[in-house]
Amino acid sequence: MENEEKRMIDSYEVEQSIHIGTKEVVFGVDKKSEYPFLVCYCTYDNIFSAAQAEKAIISDDYLEAMQEFLNRVQEQVKITQTEKEKYKCDLKPFTIEDCIPDDKGKSIVGKVVVVNAEVNRYEYRHSVYQLVLAEGGNGAIGGRGRAVMGTCLAEGKYARWERSDILGEIKPEKMPDWAKEALAKIQTQKKLKKAKSREER
């Protein structure tokens, strides 16, 4: 649906977009259309998929469309703030002092590592979104590779990081309770998925 060369959504060229939280709010224009203004959300199911447009509206009134765009941005701000407030812990970003030093030549697969907060978008630059269960990738096994594939403990989403963005393995005493619970849940889900996969063979 989306053309990567000239950011298009169907016949609408993307003129404004703001990514807040889990969604990107998009404002597009098709000057040849009877309804030249488009507002929609764009979401990404995983790191390998193209953006999917959701809840699109079109209008022939620029101000009406722009107001809708701004309303959606504000709504995403509220949702993201509410998510942040769920965590009753110190949100100060983890630093290298909170980690077991990372030896780039050794494997970190199966370990909970700390991602440098500065690689995250601004709304996610706090401790909650720094903890990742490293699961694979050439960078995760050590050596010359760069890619670290893993699951963010806070979101439960599988994504890619660079080994250079990993500060190290979180020290056991620095691991917050919510993260321990999230890790146990993720590990249980993976075991169940593997067991189901074996049964289906």
Rank of each mutant, 00 (worst) to 15 (best):
L38I: 08
V29P: 02
S49I: 04
G150Y: 13
R72C: 11
E155W: 09
S17K: 05
E118N: 10
G137L: 03
Q16L: 12
K111E: 15
V128K: 04
T22C: 05
A53F: 08
P93A: 06
G150E: 13
F37E: 06
I18E: 11
L91H: 14
K194T: 10
S33A: 15
I9M: 07
P93Q: 05
Q76C: 09
D61C: 15
R163C: 04
I100P: 02
L133D: 00
A51Y: 03
F37V: 10
K193C: 04
E13G: 02
H19F: 01
C40V: 09
N46C: 08
E13A: 00
K171N: 04
N71E: 11
E4K: 14
L192N: 08
G136H: 03
D98Y: 05
V115S: 01
R72N: 09
K31T: 04
K171Q: 08
V77I: 10
E2Y: 07
T82I: 15
N71Y: 09
L167N: 03
F94A: 02
K185E: 13
I100Q: 04
T188E: 15
V119M: 06
L133R: 00
D98W: 06
A117N: 08
Y62A: 12
Y87P: 00
E75M: 02
G28D: 04
I108W: 00
D177I: 12
N138C: 14
W178V: 01
R146Q: 14
E135Y: 04
Y41L: 04
D98A: 13
Y122W: 11
R121Y: 11
E24S: 10
H126Y: 15
K86M: 13
C40T: 08
R198Y: 08
L133Q: 01
I108S: 02
E162V: 01
I20N: 03
E68D: 07
E135L: 08
